[in-house]
Design a binder for these strands. Structure first.
Length: 430
RNA sequence: GGCCCUAUCGUCUAACGGUUAGGACGCCGGCUUUUCAAGCCGUUAAUCCGGGUUCGAUUCCCGGUAGGGUCACCA
């Protein structure tokens, strides 16, 4: 523990980052930040056929959006010289050799570099699973490079982790079975063994690993759907990790302060979008009004923000509400059916109540025309006359909508003159 | 199939040998300023099975079963 903690996230740029993939990055980063260590992102681009620039960009864009700050960035291909050097060294020491092969496919290569497997049992300690042992004999003399300039990821990864001083390898559980061969390479190279922590997988409803093929959404798609980064970060962390108390909503700083590897779950977790929606709403509610407006990225009456926070679970939903539940801000033209609740209230009753309300409104001074004030004045009347009969016509006269906030809030928002105008228009129709 | 990992409400999880097995999401029901949300209250719901160890197992051990991961000249 004397050494400074160094972790890394090593994605291959072969697809957009999804909740499963980024989880390894988040945990490695959380662990580094919690221990005041260093966090590295290394793009594993040794597979030139499948690696794409756009995916690399998507990875960095997603991390940045989530607030996962990076101390150092590498690209594996930048280290080709070093990989070749150590490949030659291993061969010189007879720990690896050039192997003649019969090509598997048309035009395949006839030579590859294989590792001299010492055929031993490798035991390592995993921070989440405890001790794990493998007999590496099954691995045979596995291939570590296609050629001196084309190392395979097992080899390149070990070299890079060593050179970059990585002390803790935090990654998905799908890598446990890769670990023994990487340890063998480390030992041949004389590289130190880092600590390992293999995270449980995140699965879809079918309980298999999340993958783009099965429609796992990219982080950037969640953003487009109106999710905010605080919620994604919090939710993704809670999938497979749990604090010692019952707190559920965490800010980024709280997550860093609370995160430890020993509270990481051993078993895989199913991704539940419903709970994500709840997390999103909770974090949306916690945003300051200013911040909320900024995230909405559109002009909005600031008085609407607290109401939107209460009702909308995503930013997209909030934007939609501006034209539905809050469409009354732009005007209202209720039908007679709406005003009378499809005839449940007679036109005469509705009309009389509206006239009475207009009269009461007239007597409220402009500066006292607030939701609370209006309610105080109207409530006794509504209670005496039948709340449904009074409040429904009023709400629909003002909103023209089946769904809206309550009539007092609407009235406060519209102001006295507008209310009187809309009530008069409704009375006219009845 | 070999090897490895895992196993508590539908889902995320708590309980590091002794609890009426706790919380959250969802569902359902109720209440509320009788629209729609939100909010509040409540209900429903779980230790995979079988053996041990122990005075006592969700917890420790073994076996079974089930699920997953991995077995590339991908990462």
């Amino acid at each position: 523990m004397a050494d400074k903690v160094v972790t890394r996230f090593a994605p291959s740029p072969t697809g957009n980052l999804n909740l499963g993939g980024v989880r390894a990055g988040i945990f490695a980063w959380l662990f580094a930040r919690h221990n005041k260590g260093k966090f590295i992102v290394r793009i594993e681009d040794t597979d030139k056929e499948r690696s794409k620039k756009e995916f690399e960009e998507n990875i960095f864009e997603s991390l940045q959006w989530l607030g996962v700050d990076i101390d150092q960035k590498y690209r594996q291909s930048e280290h080709a010289g070093r990989h070749e050097e150590l490949l030659r060294k291993l061969i010189a020491e007879d720990k690896a050799y050039i192997s003649k092969e019969k090509p598997k496919e048309e035009g395949g290569r006839t030579e590859v570099i294989r590792f001299h497997n010492p055929n031993k049992v490798v035991t390592f300690f995993d921070a989440v699973h405890g001790q794990i042992s493998f007999d590496t004999t099954d691995l045979k003399d596995f291939i570590i490079a296609k050629s001196f300039t084309e190392p395979l990821f097992h080899f390149a990864l070990v070299v890079d982790d060593w050179d970059e001083g990585v002390t803790h390898v935090v990654r998905g559980e799908d890598h446990v079975s890769n670990t023994p061969r990487q340890i063998l390479i480390q030992e041949a190279l004389g590289a130190p063994r880092p600590e390992y922590a293999h995270l449980p997988l995140i699965t879809g409803a079918d309980r298999t690993k999340l993958s783009k093929r099965k429609g796992a959404m990219a982080i950037t798609e969640y953003r487009a759907l109106g999710y905010i980064s605080e919620a994604i970060l919090n939710f993704d962390t809670m999938l497979g990790w749990h604090p010692s108390d019952e707190q559920e909503i965490f800010s980024k700083e709280e997550l860093i302060a609370a995160f430890t590897l020993d509270r990481v779950q051993k078993s895989p977790a199913v991704l539940d979008e419903t709970k994500l929606l709840w997390f999103n709403h909770e974090h949306l509610k916690r945003l300051s009004d200013n911040e909320y407006a900024k995230r909405l990225e559109q002009e909005i009456d600031p008085r609407l923000i607290p109401l939107l926070k209460e009702r909308a679970k995503t930013l997209v939903e909030a934007r939609e509400m501006l034209t539905t539940e809050f469409g009354f801000m732009q005007g209202a033209s209720p039908s007679v059916e709406l005003l009378t609740q499809d005839g449940k209230i007679t036109a005469e009753v509705a009309s009389n109540h509206l006239k009475a309300i207009a009269d009461m409104f007239e007597h409220i001074p402009d500066e006292g025309f607030s939701a609370a004030q209006i309610k105080d004045i109207l409530w006794p009347y509504a209670t005496a006359q039948g709340r449904g009969d009074v409040l429904w016509p009023l709400r629909t006269a003002l909103s023209g909508a089946t769904k809206s906030p309550d009539p007092f809030i609407i009235a406060g928002l519209l102001g006295k003159a507008e209310c009187l105008a809309r009530i008069a228009a409704a009375v006219e129709k009845l």
